[in-house]
Amino acid sequence: MAALSVNHLLGIQYLTNEDIELIFKTADQFKDVLNRPIKKVPSLRDITIANLFFENSTRTRISFELAEKRLSADIVNFSASTSSTKKGETLIDTVNNILAMKVDMVVMRHASPGACVFLSKHIDAQIVNAGDGTHEHPTQALLDAYSMREKLKLTDFKGLRVAILGDITHSRVALSNIFCLKKLGAEVLLCGPPTLIPKHIEALGVRVTHNVKEALNWCDVANVLRIQLERQDIKYFPSLREYSLYYGVNKELLDNLNKKITIMHPGPINRGVELSSDAADSDQSIILQQVENGVAIRMAVLYLLAEKAKRV
């Protein structure tokens, strides 16, 4: 069957392994489309998509917008800073008003965890979660796993060792990545200061270390996350300089390993904090490939969900 088991992409936790495999296979074909002279297919001609970004974003919004345009969908953009939400309108009212203008799908980023799940229970449109607070960021996890599959030419994730380093507590990318990688059969190790690793996270089937060298020595792929200062209401570590000293990844650390690991980062990078420039720009880094694959993965997700949208 070439259909997803879900009607919305709310989080990786709701997907089956077959769904993930189908998204990857479809993305392979879209990646090919993106390398053609005309980088566009007419599949979503009759679909209108609203991009609702209640929280700031550059990469994800542009990536979704491009994916939608490459599929020939009509799009409307919304960002909270210039809208009526400032006047006190509720989320459901905002979305229902937009849907009243005949919109079929909604791509939403919101600062509240669970905003997309909540919305999916109240409105009649396909919803794609583009990040909800500290909960999930499913398309990022999909494109991360897809980039690993591509870089390491994996047919199977079993036995793959992935370390996720940094601010785990405030990271939706970390949570979606954990769900995705565990589903696919990879081993996951989390590494960061004790204040930035949630208690009882081992219940998700991951290991925790506080030693960066140990994590890098163990893994095949290191996914380095950004320190999310905007979500940190208290001090979780003494200074960025100290964080960088104990938990930052640099070229020297990588060169002292007895193997060549792959470095990933979901962006935006705080250069010199969690990742040094020489490591971010080295040939071990696949950061720009992640961005490239993001468009293909988002095309696949939108294409497969459009199948579920109300028929004409």
Binding site: M1, A3, L22, D46, L304, A306, A309, R311
Partner: peptide, 10 residues
């Protein structure tokens, strides 16, 4: 597309 009973894989 969106009109078939069983979607096709690419």
């Amino acid at each position: 597309f969106r009109r078939r009973e069983t979607p096709l894989a690419a």
